[in-house]
């Protein structure tokens, strides 16, 4: 008995550390004031406004391909529409990069690299990093070629982060559907497990195998 408890506990602790919360591995943390964190979280109210702010402040350099948003010079190019009719709103990356090669190389010449597409950046970096970096690029990533475009506009920055979140993550309605599905699936499995267990006990008693 004591052995079973020991092995169960050590296994659970091990997987907790490895899969859920690794207290030994290094973590980076970035600061974000609570009131702005709330804005960045609230996709429903701010994503739309965030998208407009993105178009005004970031689109000159960055695309959000998964939302069909391309850098401004591409957006103004009539070729884009023809291609989108053929391939859909989200152009295949190789098509996009070869047709608009000159636009992208122009940016590369000015900044040393093509500014990254921001479709999934929210999932990679999280809201705190995005907020801190966009507000003060040099402070977070010394030597970066991204200019500070949002200096002194924390609230608008948070709204842009809300927009990036809305592109990267499933929508709030979709999320609550998934929660429902998950709870349903898990409840079903637990109920089935318990029923099987009870049925087993009864059957074995009848067979005299207990």
């Amino acid at each position: 008995m004591i052995k079973s408890i020991f092995f169960t506990l050590i296994t659970l602790v091990f997987f907790y550390i490895i899969w859920i919360n690794n207290i030994f591995a290094p973590h980076e943390r970035y600061e974000m004031p609570a009131q702005y964190a709330k804005i960045a979280e609230d996709v429903k109210s701010y994503a739309k406004e965030g998208k407009q702010l993105f178009e005004q402040n970031c689109q000159a350099c960055h695309s959000v391909r998964y939302d069909g948003v391309y850098i401004s010079s591409v957006q103004a190019n009539p070729k884009l529409q023809t291609l989108q009719e053929k391939y859909g709103k989200v152009l295949p990356r190789d098509v996009y990069e070869s047709v608009f090669y000159e636009d992208l190389m122009g940016l590369k010449e000015s900044f040393g690299k093509v500014p990254p597409d921001l479709s999934t950046i929210y999932l990679v970096k999280g809201k705190e990093y995005l907020y801190a970096f966009t507000l003060e690029p040099q402070k977070v990533l010394p030597g970066t070629s991204m200019p500070p475009v949002m200096t002194g506009r924390p609230e608008e920055t948070a709204k842009i982060v809300a927009y990036l979140k809305s592109v990267a993550e499933p929508s709030p309605e979709e999320k609550s559907k998934r929660v429902l599905m998950g709870v349903g699936t898990i409840a079903y499995l637990i109920v089935m497990g318990v029923l099987l267990w009870i049925y087993k006990g009864r059957l074995l008693k009848r067979m005299g195998l207990h």
């Binding site: 899969w19 859920i20 998934r178 929660v179 599905m181 998950g182 699936t185 898990i186 499995l189 637990i190 089935m192 497990g193 318990v194 099987l196 267990w197 087993k200």
Partner: peptide
């Protein structure tokens, strides 16, 4: 019965973690 328990844990991760 054990298997149902295992799948319940598995789907907890699939949906929530």
């Amino acid at each position: 019965a054990y298997l149902m328990g295992y799948l319940a844990v598995f789907f907890f991760f699939v949906f929530f973690y």
